[in-house]
């Protein structure tokens, strides 16, 4: 495939849903993101890779408004996040869902209650529909119904990821942020999770921003990949372009021993 892929209706110009321009984020005297530019297009799954400790999570958290930025602009849904009033900001937050690396489920609530938290907060629903929707999301992410009434401390790592995804999906968001969704899952579980994300993206028309280290995920579900290095995006594009990149880190990442093994199986 050559050049940028188009998403949505064929032939249409891809519409950026998240637009990060010249973003600078730092802690104390250390600048982590040094003028980063990144566009995420509506309907795509973007994989975001980079060495550990280079600020992949920092970017996600800055877009989400959890870390203050020093300079630059962030536009989500075509709106500058700095220019939003508090109610507009709240409305925007309902349109994205976040899967944190550790799940971040509320430990005092059951899985069902966790999924219902945003619904109760923002929607007026009958109790019956509230229950049914929570169960629907729980089943959609591949959890058994009996997991619904368990507490997060009673769940395995994979189940926590799934439950957290169900919560992230509870308001049918347009953008889904995933922070290392498959880390800590076994390969089969990780593969299922990838498939789940791809299915959800197709059926719900989601845009997915995925921070990941999982080469399988990058090959199988990501439409585009962006690589972070030294505070900038050093390479971006479909996986084929990444393979052709001659940046040393990108080369060693996609042509390392582990990458070749994955490619071998993908080609077979």
């Amino acid at each position: 495939m050559a050049g940028e892929r188009t998403f949505g209706s064929p032939g249409a110009q891809p519409e950026p849903i998240i637009r990060v321009h010249d973003l600078q984020v730092g802690f104390k005297d250390r600048l982590v993101l040094k003028g980063l530019d990144l566009d995420v297009y509506r309907g795509e799954i973007l994989g975001f890779v980079g060495p550990s400790g280079q600020g992949k999570s920092v970017l996600t958290r800055t877009i989400l408004g959890l870390i203050p930025k020093r300079a630059g602009t962030i536009e989500v849904f075509g709106q500058d996040v700095d220019a939003l009033s508090v109610p507009e900001r709240r409305a925007m937050e309902q349109r994205w869902g976040v899967l944190f690396q550790q799940g971040a489920l509320f430990s005092a609530l059951t899985v069902r209650q966790n999924v219902q938290v945003p619904m109760r907060e923002y929607l007026t629903l009958s109790d019956r529909l509230l229950d049914e929707l929570a169960m629907l999301k729980i089943e959609m992410v591949g959890l058994k119904p009996d997991a619904a009434d368990k507490l997060p401390s009673e769940l395995s790592g994979g189940m926590i990821k799934r439950a957290a995804l169900a919560r992230a999906l509870s308001l049918d968001p347009e953008i889904l942020f995933l922070d290392e969704p498959t880390s800590g899952l076994d390969p089969i579980g990780a593969g299922e999770f990838d498939e789940l994300i791809a299915t959800l993206q197709k059926t719900l028309g989601l845009t997915v921003f995925m921070v990941t280290h999982d080469l399988d995920s990058l090959y199988t579900v990501c439409d585009r990949v962006a690589a972070l290095g030294d505070g900038h995006v050093i390479a971006r594009g479909p996986i084929e372009e990444m393979l052709a990149s001659d940046h040393p880190w990108v080369r060693s990442y996609f042509h390392g021993k582990r990458a070749r093994a994955v490619m071998g199986t993908a080609a077979a």
Binding site: R112, D131, E132, M140, P145, A148, D149, T203, L204
Partner: peptide, 16 residues
């Protein structure tokens, strides 16, 4: 159509 198939109605046991 895909979405309707995906959700496919089924009964859930209510919260105990």
């Amino acid at each position: 159509r895909i979405l309707l198939n995906e959700v496919a109605y089924r009964g859930f046991q209510p919260e105990p």
